[in-house]
Computed example of a mutant assay.
Amino acid sequence: MEIQQLRHLMAAVEHRNLLKAADKTFISQSGLSRSIKSLEHRLGVPLLIRGPKGVEPTVYGQSVLRRAKVILNEVAKSIQEVRAIEQARVGEVTFGITPNYATYLVPQLLAALHRDRPGLRVTVITDGFVELIERVKSESIDFAFGLIGQVRRSDGIVIETIRAHRARVMAAADHPLARAGVCTSEDLARAEWAMLNGEGVQRSFGLFFENRGLPVPAQVMRSNSISLVRQMVKDSNVLSILPEEVVHADIEAGEIVALECETPVEQTRVGLFFREGGLLTPQAELVIDRFRRAASPIEEAVAA
C-alpha cells in the first residue's frame, strides 16, 4: 500500500468521478484507475463501486478511507516537522559556554533566540575551557563558546576566533592608583589583584612581571566568573584585568576606572570550538550564527 494510492482513492470518493479525481491529482484517468485497481488487488477486496451519484466506496473502501485520512494527516505533519527542523524552527541544540558568559552576552542572545524560535529547545552547559573541549570531542555538546585557552592541533578541535577583547587594568573609582593618574609596573606589582582563572590569562599575567624583574603580585581571588571579578573590583581595593566592553557601563557610571598604565594582558580571545570535520545540525548552525552576529553591535556600542 502506497501513500499515492491512498491519495488517489480519497480523490475518487471526494469528487465521485475518476476524470475529475485524475485532474485534481495531476494524473491521467487511466493512471488513476490502475493505481486504485492495484490497491484493490493488494487488499483482495473491491474498494469502489459505481452508484447512481457516481463513484462510491464499498464497505471495505470506507474502512480504508478512515485509516487513509489518519495516515495522510500524519504524513503531512511529518513533512511540516522535517521542514521546520531544516529551517531550525524546532528541534534541540546543546552547547557549552565558559562561566564568564553565564551572565553576560549569552542570556541576551538566548532571550532573542527564544522570541524568534519559540519551538527551539536549548541546553547550555557551563564549564571551563579544557572541560568544554573534552565535551566537544566526545560529542556530548554540539559546540562551545567562550574565552579561548591553549589547544593542541592534535586535539581534533577547530577554534574560530570571533572577537578579541581589548583588556585594561581596572580599579574602583576611589582606588589610590585611580586617583594617582598614571601608574607604573612597580605600582601594579605592589597591588592586590582579583583575576580571571583562564590558563592563558594567568600565564600572560605572570610573564609580564617576571620579564620586568618584578615579583608576581598576590591574587586575593581567582574566578572564572567575570561578573564576580567585576563586583570585587567595585567593592574593594583590588585591581583586575577586564575587557573594556564588560565594564563599559560601570566606567560610564563612574564606579570603575581604567588605569593609565601598561596592561599585563592586553587581549583575550573569544570564539567558538567545533569538532574537526564534524557535521552540525541546522539548529546548531543557527545558534552559531547568532553568536557570530552578536559581536559587531557590542563592539560598535563600546566604540561609540
Rank of each mutant, 00 (worst) to 15 (best):
93 V>N: 07
93 V>D: 00
133 I>T: 13
153 R>N: 06
102 A>P: 04
97 I>P: 08
161 T>P: 08
82 V>D: 14
118 P>Y: 11
106 V>H: 00
102 A>E: 14
161 T>I: 13
143 F>T: 00
166 R>D: 12
157 I>H: 13
157 I>P: 02
133 I>M: 13
136 V>Q: 08
141 I>S: 10
101 Y>N: 14
111 A>D: 12
128 G>M: 09
122 V>W: 01
109 L>E: 00
155 D>C: 05
117 R>W: 00
118 P>E: 05
149 G>K: 00
113 L>F: 04
121 R>Y: 05
93 V>W: 06
107 P>W: 01
160 E>S: 07
157 I>D: 09
144 A>T: 12
147 L>G: 06
151 V>G: 04
111 A>L: 11
127 D>R: 15
93 V>E: 05
107 P>D: 08
96 G>V: 08
92 E>C: 06
110 L>I: 14
171 A>S: 15
155 D>N: 11
123 T>H: 09
121 R>E: 06
128 G>Q: 05
169 V>M: 07
127 D>L: 08
136 V>L: 07
92 E>Y: 04
135 R>I: 04
164 A>N: 11
126 T>Y: 03
122 V>S: 08
135 R>D: 06
162 I>V: 12
84 A>V: 01
161 T>Y: 00
163 R>L: 08
158 V>D: 09
170 M>H: 07
94 T>G: 05
163 R>I: 05
98 T>N: 07
131 E>Q: 12
114 H>F: 14
139 E>Y: 05
120 L>D: 04
108 Q>Y: 04
121 R>W: 04
89 R>I: 04
129 F>Y: 15
89 R>G: 00
105 L>P: 00
120 L>T: 11
142 D>R: 01
133 I>E: 12
105 L>E: 15
159 I>G: 01
104 Y>Q: 05
108 Q>P: 01
95 F>G: 05
142 D>G: 03
107 P>S: 02
159 I>Y: 07
124 V>T: 13
151 V>A: 11
139 E>W: 03
116 D>G: 10
97 I>W: 02
165 H>K: 13
132 L>I: 12
167 A>D: 14
106 V>S: 00
138 S>T: 14
86 E>P: 00
130 V>H: 11
91 G>Q: 11
159 I>N: 03
149 G>M: 07
92 E>Q: 04
141 I>G: 02
117 R>E: 05
165 H>Q: 06
100 N>C: 09
156 G>N: 06
92 E>I: 05
88 A>C: 05
91 G>C: 06
167 A>R: 15
118 P>N: 08
118 P>L: 12
157 I>L: 01
98 T>W: 10
139 E>F: 10
143 F>M: 06
98 T>Q: 09
112 A>D: 15
82 V>F: 04
152 R>W: 02
165 H>T: 05
118 P>I: 07
116 D>R: 14
116 D>T: 13
169 V>R: 01
85 I>Q: 10
101 Y>G: 03
147 L>Y: 04
97 I>Q: 01
140 S>M: 14
131 E>K: 14
92 E>H: 13
157 I>C: 03
135 R>H: 15
